[in-house]
């Protein structure tokens, strides 16, 4: 069956089997920034935004989100033009091995779209679904606070 998505602003069409999982489809088609780990919706590494809401792509049927707008971490910005959330994560050492980072950045970005000035509890809650097993969690919280400030000062949502 055929599905169409807008991925990072570009229209893409795929021919899929009904049982195809979104995570597998994305990685098989070159979106290697979407990471797979637990494959049962408990670690958050595979987080993507579907219409700006964080989903675990490993427990999302590709067919079920036909026509959706999908954002991966590369949709926010790249090394030449990083998004404020990406800049803040780099600056605050919120990245160690980097495996959980794409998911964390997307969860943080989705929070800031809804709430430009979140409190610490809001940030913790928004990142609750993203496990990090090396750098810890404090740096991420600081990074999100600074990213929020950068985005407020820039006067838009920082979306590329």
């Amino acid at each position: 069956m055929k599905v169409t998505y807008i991925i990072n602003g570009k229209k893409q069409e795929f021919d899929i089997s009904p049982g195809e999982i979104l995570l597998d489809l994305l990685r098989d088609n070159g979106y290697m920034e979407v990471k797979g780990d637990c494959y049962e919706g408990t670690c958050g590494a595979c987080t993507v935004l579907i219409n700006n809401v964080p989903y675990a792509s490993c427990t999302t049927l590709a067919a079920g989100v036909d026509e959706a707008e999908i954002t991966t971490v590369k949709g926010l910005g790249d090394i030449n033009n990083p998004h404020p959330v990406q800049q803040a994560f780099a600056k605050f050492g919120a990245v160690q091995c980097g495996y959980c980072t794409p998911g964390e950045i997307l969860s943080a970005y989705a929070l800031l779209l809804k709430d430009p000035d979140p409190g610490e509890e809001d940030i913790k809650r928004a990142l609750d679904g993203n496990l990090c097993r090396c750098s810890g969690y404090m740096q991420q919280i600081e990074a999100v606070k600074i990213a929020a400030k950068m985005m407020r000062e820039a006067g838009d949502n920082g979306r590329v």
């Binding site: 919706g41 408990t42 958050g44 987080t47 809401v53 964080p54 989903y55 675990a56 427990t59 999302t60 969860s107 809650r125 928004a126 609750d128 679904g129």
Partner: peptide, 9 residues
């Protein structure tokens, strides 16, 4: 329930 990602879906 679950995590933000699970509660969204």
């Amino acid at each position: 329930v679950g995590s933000p990602q699970i509660r969204n879906r």
